[in-house]
Every structure is written in structure tokens, then in C-alpha cells.
Design a protein around this nucleic acid. Structure first.
Length: 644
RNA sequence: GCCACUUUAGCUCAGCUGGUAGAGCAACUGAUUUGUAAUCAGUAGGUCGUUGGUUCGAUUCCGACAAGUGGCUCCA
């Protein structure tokens, strides 16, 4: 007999060789039907796999993340079975679960899957699911596995096998489909009830663009149709707050084929948001001891050779223009210009830390396939600044930058983000990163310590550093789930040397400053794209392009409306009057749809009493108050940048 | 850049297997003077992304290019 410890700490005894499914059945049939897999001593196992020793056991269902992953992984196998039946001879690479579904990469040879095939594939998957085929696990020797896939002619699985150890190789079979797979899987295909193949895409083999491109088929499945329906509804809701859709509806920005891809034109409404953000940044930076500078959009090649950008970054820069035998580049970053400002005067330790800031316009020649609404563009306005400091000052300065982020995030109510400590990859020294192994080690340690000391939760990721040093990136997700770096805080131990920057120390020696590159508000483009989605277009009053719309009940009250407008305008409140001969219901509807935070309805009563009827966007009628009270309230709301 | 898809009026979208186009909203004109999410009537608006080809004839079929979109690679 063995002891099985359940999550509630209760211990039950079973014969050795009992499966998780048997344990589930002993608890209740209903539970057994829901079990997808089990966590045995912390490892996710097939529910049918025998347990031979004392163990802790957690039964996994659809409600567990690991249960969902197993379900989707098994769904990927089901999809592969359907694909193989329709496209005999297809070769498979890998088919992992995702946060929301799964994919499988495959080589279809000369054939291709079209969108019309998806419906047929879904139908086939349903058919195979209904057969309720059991997922059978089988341990195989490496020799047998190699033989199997050699006969099948599948070089991709053979490639996977190369890196696997003999004695540690398993096959899974369901129905007619056998795959090399470490598992685990759900008991049988029957629990996959709702199936949606979402899209077809290309994906480079092993993620390397030099390799062959495989076909990647994405899908998502659920144990019940209503869950799929809910998921699809959620996707539709998400699309409604997509910044590209909102940006068009609200007149924030536009793009034009004749201007060029990834080049944003900010319309008047968008420009108001930009100006408010810059005002916030200027105030905050002034408090933080920053000085503002302005630099040109172009510079000579020699500067980018000095900075070291050209070897690492040339592909992302617009090609140079030649003038008088000199090459000029559009700047892709502001740092070299700022370094020249540092170098323009002799600096002493008394000048440090020197913090210079600029909302710099930079141009990056992003690959055409990468462009995405406002989130990924070719002309961007960075909330940029560079801090030149001594090694001793570094920690305090770096922490102050982190504090600035957190201050901003509080104002905007940003809470869904991941702080990422982005480190270099030693094997790419000299290729993607400056070749200074010791400095990398030292600086990464410095940054990590700041995070630990500030008690900021973070994740560490390799191979995401800037070429000149490690950084902290703030990762956010667009409504369609794409990940972006919103803000960044970077350490640079390299450019100070390449620009021969130095300052005189107290001991009259010469030192090179450490440089911090930071952009807590990222770029206007990405930040505003993010804000539109974050607020679903309902910007807080201080950011709203139009803050108050006055809606006269009829033409007779336009004069009164105009005096109300003048009062508010005097206080700097962005106000308009809807003076069309429309019914009040229509004026309200359109004002609501354009997300004006405050609507003031004025008619007979209001005019006679010198009042306004306040309607808050999304909240409805708030009642009648005097103009002065309303003006005082909104002024306060704007001045304090109150959210929502 | 690579794989796939999309492109019809200002916007959202119809237009079956080839016979040069329609709706709603917006715009404009007129009537209406309205009390918290769409008043009524009329008018105007499109070389169907661009460009080659097939065809008696192309918005429709095929190719190239451009832009956009979903991914991959890359990145704020």
C-alpha cells in the first residue's frame, strides 16, 4: 500500500500502481469525469499513469492552469491527427499550448492550408473527438524512435530526437496519430467539445529567419461550446477597445499611403493628448532636477560611428542621405546628441548628476511586417533623458528613475505590467553587445541590486539588453495580447567611453560618467496607443481632447450656452457648444459616443437659475448645479489629474 | 524582410458562378425648436487600392506593386 496526500493534507491509502484517475473515482464519479491530468509530487502527469510510491497528488481540471495547458496540448495532437488525415505525408515540428489555445508547426511540402480548409479541419477534429480516443503513453528506446521517424521520413522529429536521452523518450498515440511527446495528455479526446482554428501563419523553424518557414496553425478548444462562445465574445469586446479603431473614431491620429508606412499624423484631438503628456513630463522632470534641451533630427555618419550605433543598429536606421560628400543619418535615438551637449563644456563632479531631457523625434526603419498601429511605428517621439553620474551616484539616480515610473503609473492607474530585468547573452558579445564581459557582469549586478533593494517585483530575461548595457523594461500587453515595452530604464557603461566623456573629480582626476538612458513615458505613439486601450477611449478629464460639451435643449438657449462656454474657457477648460438644431437625445448620444467626459444640458430652468445640468460620460444625469460649482469642481479634477 | 489574408462612397459593410455598383450612418439643403443615447423629407457623393494580363467585355479571374491585418523574425 502507498500513501497519497491530497491538497487538503488528507492522506489516503491505495495499492501501488494506482492511477490518479482511480483516486479521483474513489472520491467521486463527477470529479473523475472532470479530471484532465494530475500533479504528482509537483510534476504534471497523465491521469492514467500508475503511481508506485508515496506521493502528493493534485487532480487537475479545466479550472487549473496546468489542466488547461494539458487540454490544449492534447488538442494540438488532435489537430495534427486531422491535418495528417487531410494532408498525408505532412511533417510536424512542435505543438505547444499557449496562454489561450495552442499551435502546431508543420511542413506541408508544396501544399498549403487555406482558410477554407480550416472549417473542414474543424469538422474532422470534431469527428475524431467524438470517437473519444484514448491518449496512450508508451516509453520507447531511442533506436526505435529514430527508426520510426526515419521510416516516416520526418526529419524534424529526428532533429528533436538528437537532443533527447535514451530511456527518457515517450510516444503518445491517439486514434491514428502517433507523436514524439513528453506529455502529459488528457485521458481521451472526448472531452474536447468546442473547437476553433483561429489562424494560419508562417513561422521560421527553430525561430531563426535563416531557416525554412513552416506553417503554423493556431487553434483554441474548450470543454463546452458556451465557453468558446464566451471566448469569442471577449475577443470582440477587446476589438472595440483596439487603439486603431478608437484612434479613428475619436479623431486622434491618421496615416496615409502617400506619407509612408508607420508615419503617424496626429490630428488636433491627438495633439491635445500629446501636449498634456508633455506638460506632465516637464513638470515632473523639473522637480527631478532635469534640464531640457532640443537637438536636430539628423547627424553625420561619424557621430554614429563614434557612438557605436552603426555596427549594431544600421539595419534599423533609414539609409543616409549624402550632402557635400558627407553622409547624414536621421537619428534613431537621441543619446549621441545629448552626449555632445555633455561634452560641449568642461564638467566637474560638481555638475553631476547632469540630467538632460528632450521629447526627441527619432526615426527607425522598422521592418514593414512589424508595423502595428501606434504601437510600432517609424517616427516616434521619445520621453527621453540622459543622466550622467558617478558610480557612487548611480544607485540613487537609478532608483529615482524607477520612482518616476511608479509615480506616472499611479496617475494613469497602470497596474497590469511586468518589470523585466533585461540582460545580455554572453555568446553574442561583440555581435549584438559591446564586448566588455566584466563591465556587463558588474552593471547587471548593480541593476539587479537596485531592484531587490527597492522591493520591485521583476522577471529576468536573457538577450534583451541594449547593446550598451542592461535595462529595466516595463512590459505591457495590447488588447489583442501583444507584448510591448512601454517604458525603459537603461544603464550605459559604453558610450561614455566611446564619446570620451569625462569629468574632473574632487581629487582632480578624470573620470568617465555612467549614463542612464530612461523613457518612463516611452514614446507618445506607444503610450497614447496604450492609454486609448487602457481607458477604452474614455480618457480622464485632464487628458480628454474636449472636456466639456454644452448641449442646449433648443436654439433658444444657444446664447446662454455660449456664456457658459466663455466662463469655462477662461479657466482653461476645453469646451464646445453643440449648436445644431437637433433634438437633445441625439446631441447626448453623439457626445456620449465621442467620449466627452462632461456634457452640460442647458434649457429654460438652467438659464433662469444660472445653472447647468451635468451629465457624466457613461454615468448619466448627475443633476443640476450652479456654473461656479461645476467650474470649481472640474478645475480641481483637471489640476490634480484625477483619473476617471 | 518572410508566410497568409484583406483593400468597394468620409465611416461600417452588401454585391452568387465576369455584362462598368447599392444600404445605413456621416455630409449638404429644407422643415422641425425639441428635457437626458438616433425627428422627418430631399440632394449630392465611387475611373470598386494602383498597374499589367486573360476576355467581345473585369469590381469580379490571373500576375506585379502599394497599404493594412494575423503571425514569424526584430524592437520603444
Amino acid at each position: 500500500m502507498i500513501n497519497i496526500t491530497l491538497p487538503d493534507a488528507s492522506v489516503r491509502q491505495f495499492e501501488a500502481g494506482v492511477s490518479s484517475m482511480d483516486v479521483a473515482k474513489s472520491i467521486s464519479e463527477g470529479l473523475a469525469r472532470k479530471v484532465l491530468a494530475a500533479k504528482v509530487n509537483g510534476q504534471v502527469w497523465d491521469a492514467s499513469r500508475p503511481i508506485n510510491t508515496d506521493a502528493s497528488l493534485q487532480l487537475l481540471t479545466w479550472d487549473d492552469t496546468d489542466g488547461k495547458s494539458t487540454f490544449w496540448h492534447s488538442s494540438a495532437h488532435l489537430m495534427a491527427e486531422a491535418v495528417e488525415s487531410m494532408f498525408p505525408g505532412v511533417k510536424f515540428w512542435v505543438g505547444p499550448p499557449l496562454d489561450n489555445g495552442f499551435y502546431y508547426d508543420m511542413d506541408l511540402g508544396d501544399r498549403k492550408i487555406t482558410e477554407e480548409d480550416l472549417a473542414a479541419l474543424e469538422k474532422k477534429m470534431h469527428e475524431l473527438a467524438r470517437q473519444n480516443n484514448v491518449y496512450i503513453r508508451k516509453e520507447v528506446s531511442k533506436a526505435d524512435a529514430v527508426q520510426y521517424f526515419t521510416e516516416k521520413g520526418d526529419e524534424y522529429k529526428l532533429d528533436l530526437l538528437q537532443n533527447l536521452e535514451d530511456g527518457n523518450i515517450t510516444f503518445y498515440t491517439q486514434g491514428q496519430f502517433t507523436d514524439l511527446c513528453r506529455g502529459p495528455h488528457i485521458p481521451a479526446t472526448g472531452s474536447i467539445k468546442a473547437i476553433k482554428l483561429t489562424n494560419i501563419a508562417g513561422a521560421y523553424w527553430k525561430g531563426d529567419e535563416k531557416n525554412k518557414q513552416l506553417t503554423r496553425l493556431y487553434g483554441v478548444t474548450f470543454p463546452a461550446q458556451k465557453e468558446l462562445d464566451a471566448y469569442l465574445l471577449m475577443l470582440e469586446e477587446a476589438k472595440k477597445r483596439d487603439h486603431r479603431k478608437l484612434g479613428k473614431e475619436l479623431g486622434i491620429f491618421t496615416m496615409d499611403e502617400d506619407v509612408g508606412p508607420g508615419l503617424i499624423m496626429w490630428m488636433p484631438n491627438g495633439t491635445v493628448i500629446i501636449e498634456e503628456l508633455e506638460k506632465l513630463a516637464k513638470e515632473t522632470e523639473e522637480e527631478g532636477g532635469y534640464k531640457r534641451v532640443v537637438t536636430p533630427h539628423i547627424a553625420k555618419e561619424s557621430m554614429y560611428l563614434t557612438s557605436g550605433h552603426l555596427p549594431y543598429y544600421a539595419d534599423s536606421m533609414y539609409p543616409p542621405m549624402e550632402l557635400d560628400g558627407e553622409k547624414y543619418y536621421l537619428k534613431a535615438m537621441n543619446c549621441p546628441h545629448h552626449h555632445k551637449i555633455f561634452a560641449a563644456e568642461p564638467r566637474s563632479y560638481r555638475d553631476l548628476p547632469l540630467r538632460i531631457a528632450e521629447y526627441g523625434t527619432v526615426y527607425r526603419y522598422e521592418q514593414s511586417g512589424e508595423l502595428f498601429g501606434l504601437m510600432r511605428v517609424r517616427c516616434l517621439h521619445m520621453n527621453d533623458a540622459h543622466i550622467y553620474c558617478s558610480k557612487e551616484q548611480f544607485k540613487q539616480e537609478f532608483m529615482a528613475v524607477n520612482d518616476m515610473y511608479l509615480k506616472y503609473f499611479k496617475i494613469f492607474g497602470v497596474d497590469k505590467y511586468v518589470m523585466r530585468l533585461s540582460l545580455h547573452s554572453p555568446e553574442k558579445l561583440g555581435v549584438k553587445y559591446v564586448n566588455q564581459p566584466e563591465l556587463w557582469k558588474e552593471t547587471e549586478e548593480m541593476v539587479r541590486n537596485v531592484l531587490i533593494e527597492s522591493k520591485i517585483p521583476y522577471v529576468e530575461v536573457q538577450d534583451e539588453a541594449a547593446f550598451y548595457g542592461p535595462k529595466i523594461d516595463v512590459q505591457i500587453y495590447s488588447v489583442i495580447g501583444r507584448e510591448f515595452t512601454l517604458a525603459t530604464n537603461q544603464v550605459d557603461f559604453s558610450q561614455g567611453r566611446s564619446f570620451k566623456l569625462h569629468y574632473t573629480t574632487q581629487e582632480n582626476t578624470s573620470e568617465t560618467p555612467i549614463i542612464i538612458h530612461r523613457a518612463p513615458l516611452g514614446t507618445h505613439e506607444r503610450f497614447i496607443g496604450f492609454l486609448l486601450e487602457h481607458y477604452a477611449g474614455k480618457l480622464p478629464v485632464w487628458l480628454a481632447p474636449l472636456q466639456v460639451k454644452i448641449l442646449p435643449i433648443s436654439d433658444k438657449f444657444i446664447d446662454y450656452a455660449t456664456t457658459v462656454k466663455a466662463t469655462l474657457r477662461k479657466l482653461g477648460v476645453r469646451t464646445e457648444v453643440d449648436d445644431r438644431s437637433e433634438k437633445i437625445g441625439k446631441k447626448i448620444r453623439e457626445a456620449e459616443l465621442s467620449r466627452v467626459p462632461y456634457m452640460l444640458v442647458v434649457g429654460e430652468k438652467e438659464m433662469n437659475e444660472g445653472k447647468v445640468s451635468v451629465r457624466r460620460q457613461g454615468k448619466g444625469d448627475m443633476g443640476m448645479i450652479s456654473i461656479d460649482v461645476f467650474a470649481g469642481d472640474i478645475k480641481n479634477e483637471i489640476a490634480n489629474r484625477i483619473a476617471g
